[in-house]
Write a protein that binds this DNA or RNA. Structure first.
Length: 577
RNA sequence: CGGGGCGUAGCUCAGUCUGGCAGAGCGCUGCUUUUGGGAAGCAGAGGCCCUCGGUUCGAAUCCGAGCGCCCCGACCA
């Protein structure tokens, strides 16, 4: 590619829409251009990066035995109603109608389509295991697109779907995909941490996210200092020391103007962990619009994670209750308790209050608290589960010794053990070796291509510009030709070298513009090809070319006659890592 | 959806408070000089001042409504 003809001018100043360093560089270097909130054009350079990432993904998918297909982005709304996700996804689903008034959706993902497809073509256990994948454009009407390519409304995703006869088969397919993911991220140079994750509205039983740790991330992950344990905050657990203290008798004490856990523990001279906190929420089931009140009970030193609460309620939407609503259900904020609860509320208890004896808590009347409440004796919950949000510095439950820390990150990929929910929803059934009808078990596996793009730019840049790993760089070599408008010999040499490199199968970006050297060098640094080759009158006179690594800035010279071989050797070195 | 900021040349922005000729730097076009890390001069092109409505002799500027973009939060298969 000759730069005199390249679409995409470099900018000296970052466009005002850029908020992060790497996004600003992508815009300045002409890789991407924004059309509207959450929709970007990939310019020639950016498009080559995108294609290279896709090809890395494609290579590892094919190696894992997955088969590439392409399903429509345009989908009938009926399949979304059949799976029940039209209601679950709500406004995220882009909807439109055709000229006959038929309701359609732009696919945010393809479980529905692929399951229906499988139902059409799979009929025997001999057809399994089967994994398909596609690299395709998805549409999601995000409430707030942000972070450049990180959260967009139209984006490229690789999504794979596995079909197996049983759980063991799913485990094999899942493990293969998990390994392929590790290879993909490694080859693209993006460091990721696999974490246990919440499965969200997609359903299923167990999933892991591949998280790129970065300050600009929107997810919080919990990592252990002592073992491999890592989990999304919505899923993370921690060690809760239990007390062997004997149960004491319930007492009611007057506690004027004591309305918070802090007040209470100070007033009673006890630790926060010796109190029970009762938090009110309003919840809405996806199936109906009816709101119902929920009382979450948790030990005073912990906080309720609302995603955990939502999952405990079968995936209900949850919001904090207003004070006026609390009054409506007859509860007194500050003195709320599951003990002697008169109102009709769903009580969800965190496991922390089940084993802890003699907790102080509200008495459901203004100015009074109970001492020594005990689960089972004084009150019971409708649901007992894990609601507590992990915090920095707590102890790991897996290795019993490691300390948990919190970090921000971006989800690069997600692998799910889906199970049979979609196959059941679409009535997919196959015969096993005994001739019995069996519902296949599914897994699904996603990777955001644009997110790898953004993460790689974030990892590989410095103050001067981008610095792509060779596996995804738009071009391997940036050929800078100084003074070709003044010196025909240099001009011939530059064009000759350009032709030779192309002939050798090397991707070259050739700066053939008649500009000052500083401009060309700065553009080369900004655009970030791994290897820069300089041809100039000075070098020509010495019959050499100059080869400079973008990463370390170090130059070496090679005789012109051996130029192509020397460049090939440098490329080979970079490929070896 | 709540809070905040912004919208003027291709890009970054001044001008808005206090109404009165449409501006700067970079980029772009032509010419001259210059040529190893974003050179200099000369001459130019380029505008629906986001949109609509209102106030006014007169609106980029004041008032109202709307739209768009960015940030924080809610949300996030």
């Amino acid at each position: 590619m000759q730069m005199s003809n390249l679409l995409g001018k470099t900018l000296r100043e970052p466009p005002s829409e850029a908020d992060s360093g790497s996004l600003a560089l992508l815009l300045r270097a002409g890789y991407i251009s924004q059309l509207m909130a959450g929709a970007y054009t990939f310019m020639p350079l950016g498009n080559r990066v995108r294609l290279n990432i896709e090809n890395v993904v494609r290579k590892h998918m094919n190696l894992s035995g997955a088969q590439e297909i392409l399903m429509p982005a345009l989908q009938p709304i009926e399949i979304w109603e059949q799976s029940g996700r039209a209601a679950k996804m709500k406004d995220v689903l882009f909807r439109l109608s055709d000229r006959r008034g038929r309701s359609l959706a732009l696919g945010p993902t393809h479980e529905e389509v692929v399951t229906q497809l499988a139902g059409k073509f799979i009929s025997s256990h001999r057809d399994l295991p089967l994994t398909t994948y596609q690299i395709q454009t998805k549409f999601r009407d995000e409430a707030r697109p942000r972070g450049g390519l990180v959260r967009v409304r139209e984006f490229t995703m690789k999504d794979a779907y596995s079909f197996d006869l049983d759980e063991d088969g799913l485990s094999d397919s899942y493990d293969k995909m998990f390994q392929a993911y590790k290879n993909i991220f490694s080859e693209c140079g993006v460091p990721v941490v696999p974490v246990d994750a919440d499965s969200g509205a997609i359903g299923g039983k167990g999933s892991q996210e591949f998280i790129f740790i970065t300050e600009m991330g929107e997810d919080t992950v919990v990592q252990c200092s002592g073992c491999e344990y890592a989990a999304n905050l919505e899923k993370a657990t921690f060690l809760q020391e239990s007390s062997a203290e004997a149960q004491k008798s319930l007492e009611e004490v007057e506690t004027p103007n004591v309305a918070t856990i802090e007040d209470l523990s100070e007033f009673l001279s006890i630790a926060n962990s010796s109190t029970a906190k009762a938090v009110l929420f309003m919840a809405t089931k996806f199936e109906s619009d009816e709101e119902f009140p929920v009382l979450a009970v948790i030990r005073g030193d912990f906080e309720v994670n609302d995603v955990k609460l939502s999952n405990a309620l079968g995936g209900a939407e949850v919001r904090p209750m207003e004070a006026s609503e609390a009054a409506n259900v007859g509860l007194v904020p500050g003195y709320i308790s599951p003990v002697n609860l008169a109102s009709e509320v769903t009580v969800v208890a965190d496991r922390s209050v089940i084993s802890a004896p003699n907790l102080a808590g509200g008495a459901n009347r203004e100015g009074w608290h109970y001492l020594n409440t005990n689960y089972g004796r004084d009150w019971e919950a409708d649901i007992v589960t894990d609601l507590a949000e992990a915090q920095e510095g707590l102890t790991c439950e897996q290795c019993d010794g490691g300390i948990l820390s919190l970090a921000r990150g971006i989800e690069m990929g997600h692998v799910f053990r889906l199970g049979q929910i979609y196959a059941e929803a679409f009535g997919v059934s196959i015969q096993d070796s005994d001739g019995a009808a069996v519902t296949p078990t599914m897994g699904c596996y996603g990777i955001g291509i644009g997110r790898i793009f953004a993460a790689a730019a974030e990892v590989f840049h410095d103050d001067n510009g981008l610095n792509w790993p060779i596996a995804i760089a738009p071009y391997q070599v940036h050929l800078v030709a100084i003074g070709i408008d003044k010196d025909d010999a240099v001009r011939d040499e530059a064009y000759g070298l350009y032709a030779e490199l192309i002939e050798s199968g090397i991707d070259v970006l050739f700066d053939d513009r008649a500009l000052r050297p500083g401009v060309m060098f700065n553009d080369a640094d900004l655009m970030g090809m791994p290897i820069r080759v300089t041809v100039s009158p000075r070098n020509h006179e010495n019959e050499i070319i100059e080869i400079t690594g973008r990463a370390d800035g170090e130059s070496l010279t090679a005789p012109r006659a051996e130029g192509v071989d020397s460049i090939k050797a440098e490329i080979h070195k970079l490929r070896q890592g």
